[in-house]
Design a binder for these strands. Structure first.
Length: 936
RNA sequence: GGGUGAUUAGCUCAGUUGGCUAGAGCGUCUCGUUUACACCGAGAAGGUCGGGGGUUCAAAUCCCUCAUCACCCACCA
C-alpha cells in the first residue's frame, strides 16, 4: 500500500469507523450486567446467581492475568497504586445529547474528552465501557414541538396528554439518527448496543422503583407551595431553571390609610393580606396590631411585625401577598395569613373586583396605578434596578404561583451526599468544585419534581376519585401509568397528569446505564469518571450523587471532570444572535475528526470557559499530516530494506536483568516489576529517541491520570514533531535502523491513538508490517537505551544548533556562502562527522591544524570554529559583542546568587552545585569569546 | 450581600508541594523548492508574569491589598 503525499481524512474516516464498529472492539471485554428483556425475569434467582458468578469469575481471571501481562507494566508504581488501576474495568457514560438536535461544539469537546479517556484505558488493557445515550430532553424538546404545533395552527390544548406524548414520540423518532451519525463522525468508541434513550422502559423502571422507595420512606410529599411558573409554557420549574436578570423597574409608594407601603407590583395588592413593619422600627410602633383599609377594595388587613421588613428600604412598610411572592409566602406562613390567588396560570387577574377581572397583569397594573392616583393614594415613585426571574427558555417573566406539586424532601439526601463528599470519595477536576457543590447542598431547598408538560415520564401517582369520605388514602403509588385510571380494592383512582422533571430521571444515569441492580455485583459501578459541563454541576452532578447514594449506597462515580464553555476565538459566548457559532461537523468535514479533537483539547483546562478557534484545528490537522508523512518515510525505508534481514528482532527482557550489558535509563520507579523492550541501538540518536519516547510515555501517563488533556496532547506533539521527526528521523536518513524505526513508530502511533484515533488507525492499516487494529493494541512498553549515549546526543544537538544559529546570523548569510567547520581534539565531533555535516549542511568538517582561525562557536565544552574569512569575522564583530554581553548578564546574575551567603547556606546543595558549575562554564565561554573578539 | 475563576509574548493558553536563562501553538520577520511532509525545513524577534505591599536565600507560584473581566449563589417590597 502506497502512502499518498498528504493525509486526506475524508477518504478513510468512515471506513475506519465501520471497521471498528463491526469488529466488536467497542464492547467491554468483561461481560456487562445482563439486561432483563422481560420484566418477569426479575424473579429468576438461579439465573442471577449464575450471572454473578460468571461476572466475578471473569473479573478475577482478568485480574490475575494482569500481573503478568505487559499491558499495565509500563505504568509507574504510583500509577499502579492509584484507584483507577486497581480494577480491570473502565466505565464512563455519555451525557446524553438531545435526541432531537444536532451536536454543538460543547458535545464535540465532551466526546473528545470522554473518548480519549476510553481509548486510553482500553489500550491500557482495561475492559472499557463507554455508554452512549440520547436525551428526550423533556422541556427542550417540548418547546421545539410546541413551536411546530403553532406553525400548523394548533395548540397543545386541542389534544389529550396521551395524544401529545405519542405525537412527540413520533416527532423525535423522525429526528433521531442524525445525532448518532455525528457521534460516529467524532470517533466516539462507545458501545452502541447499550445506547440508552431517556424514555426507555428500563429508565422508567428505575425511576419508578426509586420513586416508590422515596414514597415509602416519606421523602415524597405533595404540597401547595409557591413555585416558579412560566405563563407561556404553562409549567412549573425548579429554582435552577430560572434566570435572574437585573432590570429597571419602578418602586411605587402607596398609601394604605396612615401607612405608606412600597411595591414594584401594585397589581398584586388585591392579594394582600397584611402589611408588615420591622419590630424594631419605632415609626410604626403605634400602628402595630391595627388594621388598614386595602385600597380599591373593601377589605381591612392587619399591620404585623416581621423581620422581613427592612426599615431602610422604601417606607419601611411592606405589603404582604403570600400567594404571589416567595418572601411573602414565608411571612404568611409565619403569621398564618390567608393566601389569595389573584393571578391565574394564564397570567390574567382573578378574584379581583369586577373592573379588573380578566385583565393581564400588565393591563391591571396600569389601571390600578391610574385609580390610585385618581384617589390620591399614589404618594410617589422611584426608578430602581431589581432582579427579575425569567423562564430560561422563552424569557417570559416567571410568575410565582401557588400550585399543588410533588416535592422531594432533600434534607437527608443532601446530608448523606455531603458526608461522602467530605470523606473525599469523589475527586473533582477542577478541585475547587468540591466545596462549591458542598455549599450548594448545604443550602438546598426541597425539589419540585412536577412538570405540567406531557413530554416526559409520567408521575406514577393516582388520586382517589371518590369523595374524601372513604378511609382510603388520597394518593397511591402505581406503575400502570399507561392507564388514565385504575381500580384498587374497588376504589377508582385517577392518574396525576404531571410528568417528572427530567433531572429526576437524569440523576439515575450512572445507575441506569450500568444496569445496576441490588442483586448483582457490578464492576462498572461506580463509574470511573463522570465527564460533563461545569454549568450543570448543581442540576445534574449534585443530584446524581444524592440519587446514587440513596439508591445504591455508593457514590455513582469516583472522579468528576468538568469542562467549561467553548467560547469563540475572541473569548465571547457563542450564540445564534451573535452569529459566532462554530459547528463542529463543519470542522470535521474540513480538517478531519482527529484535527478537531486535537484542536479542541489543546489549550483547554478543567472548569474554565476558554476560547476556541479554527487555528487550533489547523494545527491538529498539520500534526496528522506530519505523522502521515513520518510513516510514509519509514515505510519507504522499510520497503528499501526488504531482503536484507536487519536487526529486526526484539527481545523482551525483565528490567532487573542484571546480565544485560546495557543499563536502562528509565527511572527505577518506572521500571520496577516492568518489562523493557530491548532493541539494538547503534548510535546516540537512537539511544536518545528511546529515552525521549520513554519520557513522553511517563509524561502522558501522568497527564492522563490527572486529566490534563492539553498537556498530554502537547507532549505528544513535541515528541513527534520536534524530537522524532526533526532530529531522530533526520539522523536516521544516515543510519536506517529498520527495527527501531518500526518499533518507535508503533509506539508513537499507539500513544497518540486516544486523541487522534482515525489517522493512527489509517496508518496502522497502511503499514506493511502491522496487523490487527490499533484500537485493540496494547499500551507500549518502555524502550531500553544507553543513557550516556543518549546524553551525548544532546551535545550533538547543542553543537548543531549553535552552528545553524551562527551561520544564520552571519552578515549576508545565504546559500552562496558556505563555510567549513573546524574542530580541535574533540572525539565526540570526530566520531560523528557525517551526522553533524548532514544536520548543519556545512560542506566539510576538518580537524584544526595549527593556530585557531575563523569564528569560535559559543560552546563551552567544545572547541569548534567556523572557517570564515577575515572580512566575515570582522563583520560579525557586533553580533559577537552582543553575545558576550548576553553571557555576561547571565554570569552576573549567577555570581550575585553565589555572593549571597544565605543562598549558599540555605539553598539545597545540588542547586548550589549547579550554580557553581554554570558559573564555571559561562566564565570559560566568555573568556574564549573575549579572546576571539580581541583577535578581530 | 456571599462566593468562585481569570489577569503571563500581538492572539489563545501552559507553567501541580516556591528553585537553572518563564514555555507552546498560531501570528510576525529573515533564509531555504535538500526525492517524508510548503499542512515543510532552519533561524530570529517578542514578556519588568494586572498594580502595590509582605514572607523567603529565592516568588508567575505563598500571604495581604487594590483594579479589571467573567461566572455562580442569595436577594432587592
Amino acid at each position: 500500500m502506497k502512502f499518498a503525499s498528504s493525509y486526506e481524512p475524508n477518504q478513510y474516516e468512515s471506513d475506519i469507523y465501520a471497521a471498528w464498529e463491526t469488529s466488536g472492539v467497542f464492547d467491554p471485554t468483561i461481560p456487562t450486567v445482563p439486561v432483563d428483556d422481560d420484566a418477569s425475569g426479575h424473579d429468576d434467582r438461579e439465573e442471577l446467581r449464575e450471572a454473578e458468578s460468571e461476572f466475578r469469575g471473569a473479573f478475577a481471571t482478568t485480574g490475575a492475568n494482569d500481573e503478568a501481562s505487559p499491558v499495565t507494566t509500563g505504568a509507574s508504581e504510583e500509577a499502579t497504586r492509584s484507584s483507577d488501576s486497581a480494577s480491570s474495568t473502565f466505565s464512563i457514560v455519555m451525557p446524553p445529547p438531545n435526541a432531537n438536535g444536532n451536536l454543538h461544539i460543547g458535545h464535540g469537546l465532551t466526546i473528545a474528552l470522554e473518548d480519549s479517556l476510553t481509548r486510553y484505558y482500553r489500550l491500557k488493557g482495561k475492559s472499557a465501557w463507554f455508554i452512549p445515550g440520547a436525551d428526550h430532553a423533556g422541556f427542550e424538546t417540548w418547546v421545539v414541538y410546541e413551536r411546530e404545533l403553532e406553525k400548523h395552527g394548533h395548540t397543545r390544548f386541542e389534544f389529550s396528554r396521551d395524544e401529545l406524548y405519542s405525537r412527540v414520540w413520533n416527532f423525535v423518532a423522525e429526528q433521531r439518527g442524525n445525532m448518532e451519525l455525528q457521534l460516529r463522525a467524532l470517533g466516539a468508541s462507545c458501545t452502541w448496543d447499550d445506547l440508552t434513550f431517556t424514555l426507555d422502559e428500563n429508565v422508567i423502571d428505575h425511576v419508578y422503583t426509586t420513586f416508590e422507595k422515596m414514597w415509602n420512606d416519606g421523602l415524597i410529599y405533595r404540597d401547595k407551595k409557591l413555585v416558579n411558573f412560566c405563563p407561556k409554557h404553562q409549567t412549573a420549574f425548579a429554582d435552577i431553571e430560572v434566570d435572574h436578570l437585573d432590570e429597571p423597574g419602578t418602586l411605587w409608594d402607596i398609601a394604605y390609610d396612615d401607612i405608606i407601603v412600597s411595591t414594584t407590583r401594585p397589581e398584586t395588592l388585591f392579594g394582600d393580606t397584611a402589611v408588615a413593619v420591622n419590630p424594631n422600627d419605632d415609626r410604626y410602633k403605634d400602628l402595630i396590631g391595627k388594621t388598614v383599609h386595602l385600597p380599591l377594595t373593601d377589605r381591612e388587613i392587619p399591620i404585623i411585625t416581621d423581620e422581613h421588613a427592612d426599615p431602610e428600604y422604601g417606607s419601611g412598610a411592606v405589603k404582604i401577598t403570600p400567594a404571589h411572592d416567595f418572601d411573602d409566602f414565608e411571612v404568611g406562613n409565619r403569621h398564618n395569613l390567608e393566601r389569595i390567588q389573584v393571578i391565574s396560570e394564564d397570567g390574567k387577574m382573578i378574584n379581583v373586583p369586577e373592573k379588573y377581572e380578566g385583565l393581564t397583569t400588565a393591563e391591571c397594573r396600569k389601571q390600578v396605578l391610574k385609580d390610585l392616583k385618581d384617589q390620591g393614594l399614589l404618594k410617589g415613585e422611584k426608578k430602581i434596578t431589581h432582579s427579575v426571574a425569567h423562564c430560561y427558555k422563552c424569557g417570559t417573566t416567571i410568575e410565582p404561583m401557588l400550585k399543588n406539586q410533588w416535592f422531594v424532601d432533600v434534607k437527608s439526601l443532601a446530608k448523606t451526599a455531603i458526608e461522602h463528599l467530605k470523606n473525599d470519595e469523589i475527586k473533582f477536576h477542577p478541585a475547587s468544585k468540591k466545596n462549591i457543590i458542598i455549599n450548594y447542598l448545604e443550602n438546598l431547598k426541597d425539589w419540585n419534581i412536577s412538570r405540567q408538560i406531557p413530554w416526559g415520564i409520567a408521575i406514577p401517582m393516582f388520586r382517589n376519585a371518590t369523595a374524601e369520605a372513604t378511609d382510603e388514602p388520597e394518593w397511591i403509588f402505581d406503575r400502570r401509568t399507561n392507564l388514565k385510571e385504575i381500580e384498587k380494592s374497588g376504589v377508582k383512582y385517577i392518574r396525576d397528569e404531571d410528568t417528572f422533571d427530567t433531572w429526576f430521571s437524569s440523576s439515575h444515569w450512572p445507575i441506569i446505564c450500568t444496569n445496576w441492580t441490588e442483586e448483582n455485583f457490578n464492576p462498572y459501578y461506580p463509574l470511573n469518571v463522570m465527564e460533563t459541563g461545569a454549568d450543570i454541576l448543581f442540576a445534574w452532578v449534585a443530584r446524581m450523587i444524592m440519587m446514587g447514594l440513596y439508591v445504591t449506597g455508593e457514590v455513582p462515580f469516583r472522579e468528576v471532570y468538568l469542562h467549561g464553555l467553548v467560547l469563540d476565538e475572541h473569548g465571547k459566548k457563542m450564540s445564534k444572535s451573535k452569529g459566532n457559532v462554530i459547528n463542529p461537523m463543519d470542522l470535521v468535514t474540513k480538517y478531519g475528526s482527529d484535527a478537531f479533537r486535537l484542536g479542541i483539547l489543546r489549550g483547554r483546562s478543567a472548569g474554565l470557559n476558554q476560547a476556541f478557534s479554527e487555528q487550533s484545528v489547523i494545527s491538529g490537522r498539520n500534526l496528522c499530516n506530519k505523522l502521515w508523512n513520518i510513516s510514509r518515510l519509514i515505510q519507504g525505508i522499510v520497503d528499501d530494506d526488504k531482503g536484507t534481514e536487519s536487526r529486526g528482532a526484539f527481545a523482551t527482557t525483565g528490567a532487573n536483568d542484571e546480565a544485560s550489558p546495557v543499563t536502562t535509563g528509565a527511572s527505577e520507579e518506572a521500571t520496577r516489576g516492568s518489562v523493557l523492550l530491548s532493541c539494538q541501538t547503534d548510535n546516540m540518536g537512537e539511544d536518545w529517541i528511546c529515552r525521549e519516547i520513554n519520557a513522553c510515555l511517563d509524561q502522558l501517563e501522568t497527564s492522563m491520570k490527572n486529566y490534563r488533556f492539553s498537556e498530554a496532547v502537547e507532549t505528544l506533539y513535541s515528541t513527534i514533531w520536534d524530537k522524532y521527526a526533526d532530529w531522530f528521523l533526520e539522523s536516521q536518513k544516515l543510519y536506517k535502523n529498520v527495527g527501531l524505526l518500526k518499533k518507535t513508530l508503533e509506539t508513537l502511533l499507539i500513544a497518540l491513538h486516544p486523541f487522534a484515533p482515525f489517522v493512527t488507525e489509517t496508518i496502522w492499516q497502511n503499514l506493511s508490517w502491522t496487523s490487527g487494529l490499533i484500537i485493540a493494541e496494547k499500551w507500549p512498553s518502555r524502550l531500553e537505551f544507553d543513557p550516556i549515549s543518549a546524553e551525548n546526543f544532546e551535545s550533538i544537538r547543542t553543537i548543531v544548533s549553535e552552528v545553524r544559529g551562527t551561520l544564520a546570523s552571519l552578515p549576508g548569510a545565504n546559500k552562496d556562502k558556505k563555510f567549513n567547520l573546524l574542530y580541535d581534539k574533540d572525539s565526540l565531533v570526530e566520531d560523528n562527522l557525517l551526522l553533524i555535516r548532514t544536520l548543519t549542511k556545512v560542506p566539510a568538517i576538518n580537524a584544526l591544524s595549527g593556530a585557531p582561525r575563523g569564528l569560535r562557536l559559543a560552546l563551552a565544552n567544545h572547541e569548534l570554529y567556523l572557517d570564515v574569512d577575515e572580512k566575515t569575522v570582522n563583520a560579525y564583530k557586533d553580533a559577537l559583542t552582543e553575545k558576550i554581553l548576553a553571557v555576561g548578564r547571565e554570569l552576573d546574575s549567577l555570581n550575585a546568587r553565589m555572593m549571597n551567603p544565605n543562598y549558599v547556606d540555605k539553598a539545597p546543595r545540588n542547586l548550589v552545585k549547579e550554580t557553581e558549575d554554570a558559573i564555571k562554564e559561562k566564565s570559560a565561554l566568555i573568556d574564549r569569546l573575549k579572546q576571539q573578539l580581541s583577535l578581530i
